[in-house]
Design a binder for these strands. Sequence first.
DNA 1: TGATTTTTTGAGCAAATAATCTAAAATTAA
DNA 2: TTAATTTTAGATTATTTGCTCAAAAAATCA
Lengths: 204, 204
Amino acid sequence: MSRGRPPKFDENQVLDTAAALFKRDGYDAVSVADLCRETGLAMQSLYHRFGDKAGLYREALDRYGRTANDPQITALEADDDALAAVRGFVRQWKRHAGAGPDGGCLFTQAMARGDRTQPEAPDATARAYTARLRKALAATLRRAVGAGQLAADTDVPGVADALLTLAFGVAVVGRGGMPASMIDHAVAAGLALLDRHASGAGRG
Amino acid sequence: MSRGRPPKFDENQVLDTAAALFKRDGYDAVSVADLCRETGLAMQSLYHRFGDKAGLYREALDRYGRTANDPQITALEADDDALAAVRGFVRQWKRHAGAGPDGGCLFTQAMARGDRTQPEAPDATARAYTARLRKALAATLRRAVGAGQLAADTDVPGVADALLTLAFGVAVVGRGGMPASMIDHAVAAGLALLDRHASGAGRG
DNA sequence: TGATTTTTTGAGCAAATAATCTAAAATTAA
DNA sequence: TTAATTTTAGATTATTTGCTCAAAAAATCA
């Protein structure tokens, strides 16, 4: 067993709470005092465990990647019906657009904020996780092509990047309070993009 | 003529500088001292003219809307070739993705940051200008339909919103430092979306 | 038990922050 | 000139910020 006094807090719970705060208000607008109040951690406990505010932010981003990003990858890979999997990915964009505790996207926050000054920039985490999702998305599309669900000449990287970029757009537009119909139209466009390449279902 | 001592600074120049700072670093990361140093304004001059930091931010957003958003609307409306105008709109997304002083998008920053607590929230300005662009984009697409450039059954609001959402996504993805090929693919997807509805040019 | 390790507690610090006070400087109108 | 008006100047203030110091509390191991 571990030697010293046992921690009073659940680490993942702390990270989830911190991630929610950073997602809602942005890194700069969340103070360490806010973090302590919301997570229940004493100040020194926070610094002892996470080093500093940026350290907690980085770990919160990582936790978010594991709990919000990776499951999407898993869902893409798990579904035997590759095209249906991608469609499912598109359909759940609405979640990123909402304002509630489940809404919004921390990676969009992190990327919009940027911070390329430091070598260990926090948005590097967001970038890395997004790159993995991008890869998985392309792989699933390739699988759909292989299964004959999408046309053989489908530009797989092009479609994958278009969908992913659209997903980020949905997060911004939703967060910005633009009309909900914009989100619906974006989702519809994502699905239509897939339909366009679906074999044997061409339009016109 | 105005009565008192004449201002030493050019107002628009100050707003442009402020907008560039806010765009690059975000509202919270820019201090009033930064703003004074970069704009050359004395602290008291800044507060005398703009009230407070938020006031300067709001006016900078407005200035950005006039100098970066509205010209896009004008370009859409001015071009007799409606479809070409929309294509031009899509092609210049790359600019929003860049990192230099011309790169990035202040409205994306403002929307991602959010701030729906206040009634006169700063992102309301971004929302209002974006709404105008959205309207103009739809109008131009409708014009293209009327001119027979796009199919009569084109879902105009759907296409407009898809393009605009994609544009926001490009800004985030570019700012986040994702591969440049993502931007290229997003632009290509925007153009392909138009091609898909172009009359007499169906694929497959 | 006593020594060791780790976490918690609570107070507090230096620096940066947005914003203000008072007064001088530069212009126009009378 | 004189008065009125507006902008600039420099110093300052109260608050908030991220962060640290010293010591007590709770566990394990000898």
